[in-house]
Design a protein around this nucleic acid. Sequence first.
DNA 1: CCAAAAGTGTTGAAGTTACACCCATGC
DNA 2: GCATGGGTGTAACTTCAACACTTTTGG
Lengths: 264, 264
Amino acid sequence: MSILHFANILNSFLPLIMQSKNRHELNPRLSTDCVIFGFDLNQLKVLLIERESVNGVEQCMALPGDLIFEEENLDMAASRVLLELTGLQEIYLEQVGAFGDLDRLNKPQDQLWLKAVRQNPDERVITVAYYSLVNMNNYTPQPSSFAKSASWVPLDEVKELAFDHLTILNAAFAKLQEKIRIQPIGFNLLPEKFTLTQLHKLYEVILGRELDKRNFRRKMLKLDIVESLRERQEGVPHKPSQYFKFNEEKYNDLFQNGFDNFGF
Amino acid sequence: MSILHFANILNSFLPLIMQSKNRHELNPRLSTDCVIFGFDLNQLKVLLIERESVNGVEQCMALPGDLIFEEENLDMAASRVLLELTGLQEIYLEQVGAFGDLDRLNKPQDQLWLKAVRQNPDERVITVAYYSLVNMNNYTPQPSSFAKSASWVPLDEVKELAFDHLTILNAAFAKLQEKIRIQPIGFNLLPEKFTLTQLHKLYEVILGRELDKRNFRRKMLKLDIVESLRERQEGVPHKPSQYFKFNEEKYNDLFQNGFDNFGF
DNA sequence: CCAAAAGTGTTGAAGTTACACCCATGC
DNA sequence: GCATGGGTGTAACTTCAACACTTTTGG
């Protein structure tokens, strides 16, 4: 009796198995990946994990991500996986979308890794990606589970990632760029008190182009989402800058309504 | 030996089964749903299917959607399912996102239906939703497969849908509203030749508010994405309107670059 | 006193809003 | 001739883009 034949017989029991099995199992066909953006006041970074090498072969870096449980909401799964691999928690994650290309796990190196850690390494896996923005100062990654390390990597140094993670990262970054035009989301990436120059820089790195300093400041101040703390930098070898905080009330207002800048 | 015990033993063979089974099977945990918007020159409509009644119980309407095959891209699955259920094809579908709440299939009526048509009715299913805009004149729905009927339903008459389809519809509509501010996508919803009044009406129903007629026309003409056909309506009991077509070249240009209206 | 970044105003151009009347047609 | 929707212009206002110099501090 061939394996195929054997499997086909077992196959007829699948419905039974499905109904009775422990639902706290992992779903072998569904995963989640998280794209967490941070900002070090100079450049945009993304949180990546390093996985253990397999048979002495170094694995390239990856987004924090893993299979989800059978009985787990997608959103909760993303939060859990992020926590397990990097120690970060209480982060609002927004969905980027589902990624399910048939060849997304086919790179030889990825296959090697999957064979080492997954029960069903050949299983086709669809992943649901999430993204978020965080203030790097408040979250220090602590690798655990299969993450050998978890660290902030400058976006423009990311050349290669596991699986289709580069595609996912690009999609998330595109969402970020689109979103920052409509909602004043960037504040999540900054410390509680920040200078307008830092905010200015943040917008420049997200949008990928220079913005006029005076026009930028005028606009931000008029939107009324920043508020001076009447406190200045100290110890800087130049004219000290005022610190600002963001005005949560206005922020929430704009966050909900968007900037509504289309013109209609 | 309990069923549970039995299942647990079989469970250990699962990896084997997974590897050897026919990959042209349906994945019992993954589905796709399509939100197709149409416009009848007066109101927005969405394409819904009606399913066979189960044990004499009428089923409420649903988005066209079904399980996807193991070896099938998500995008292709959405196109296939749409074709199978409604006869529509060659439609560009854009992803809305993944929906996977644990209770999304739990309504009693939905359970009834699932038990009638699915091999594993209790399986937790995650769905990947897509949306599109079409010119209703070019696509006449032809129900088949488990769709008893497929028809255009005015958006504001949709009160209840199967599963979490109302949530999905709302998410897709929100995307549509957001997108039309950034890209001139509305033309997909109109016939090849249309009047500015029809286009105007379309924008009003999508955005859900009145727009000044003169300002709207001025703006559209300046964007240069519509072009007069120097042809007029006939047989209308009022001053006949010019027909316009949209300027594909300009359209594609704006489609790629967006309106870039944020101000930075 | 030098280097470095902070902070500040104006102007011309473009875009936005609000608003009311005449026109061409079928009946 | 009347009902219906088509089609048009202007003025006040707001927003945008471009541009350069003075200020404050540490060393």
